[in-house]
Design a protein around this nucleic acid. Structure first.
Lengths: 149, 149
DNA sequence: TATTGTTATACTCTATAACTATA
DNA sequence: TATAGTTATAGAGTATAACAATA
């Protein structure tokens, strides 16, 4: 068990300053990570592939999740089908619906994009000390909590 | 002076896992922060206002900084002038150039957008313990280092 | 009649190419 | 002639409205 270090609660001013610092750092990291893989696959295509990796879905479901209109999502999914990353199949129980699934090619491109993104992060970690890395590891759980719904 | 806690250097596998965790948390936080203020001012307009807050610049300079074409930047800056957030002035020493500056209205909208963004972060911090906040404060400097250059 | 998918049309932001004015 | 700004035009992604097929 780690020895509890006594901490002084942060003042309101310190919290405002902290929120600004964390926000800026996250936005800058996010921008640079995206920049690393935008050439491979545009952001909105990537986002939809991630949703289809979880489970096959219909066009309407994807439109709801990504908060775009059905026609816009139709454009996106058509492009993904065209690229061979997504396949279409009629729903056997409801003739109106079309089920969209990730193809093996789609899985491959997801792995490739993630590898590029993580490689950039890893390269940034090289400039850190062991203590800084350990600090980030403990902070990761807190950041996940901040990011969570 | 804080007592140095002995740390074990993270393994390669732990670093890969960490890079994924930090990347995901930053991207999710970034997405939600942007969502908080997109209705106030589209991202590309906000970004240009921030550049003009630093110092007045020409259209070409802004296009270079933001990595968009000169005609695209022209559209953006024209919209900002139309909104009253940016003013145009002829360069007295070079008749070809037009200097763009932030107006008082532009400064006000920047303050408003930042307040919205930070308010979201602050609301998220309410769910944290004092220890978690203190941890984030120390991690902020490391995250800034990761995001830098 | 309600719902899913699709097509038609338009608006925004992006780009490249061409034109104007000044150095 | 070179450079800054601008205008013309086109492409990609978004939207709303209308239409087709199925429940």
């Amino acid at each position: 068990m780690r020895t509890k270090t006594p901490t002084t609660p942060l003042s309101r001013a310190e919290l405002v300053s902290l929120s600004n610092d964390i926000r800026l750092a996250c936005m800058r990291i996010s921008r640079r990570v995206r920049f690393e893989s935008d050439r491979e696959l545009p952001p909105h295509l990537y986002s939809v592939l991630v949703r289809l990796e979880e489970t096959p879905r219909t066009n309407s479901e994807l439109a709801d999740i990504e908060r775009v209109s059905a026609p816009s999502m139709k454009r996106t999914t058509s492009a993904l089908v065209e690229l061979g990353y997504v396949s279409r199949a009629d729903d056997p129980t409801d003739g109106r619906q079309v089920i969209l699934s990730l193809t093996p090619e789609g899985q491959k491109v997801l792995r490739r994009v993630r590898r590029h993104r993580d490689e950039w992060m890893l390269s940034r970690f090289e400039h850190l000390t062991d203590e800084e890395r350990e600090l980030l590891q403990r902070a990761a759980a807190v950041l996940a909590k901040v990011a969570s719904k």
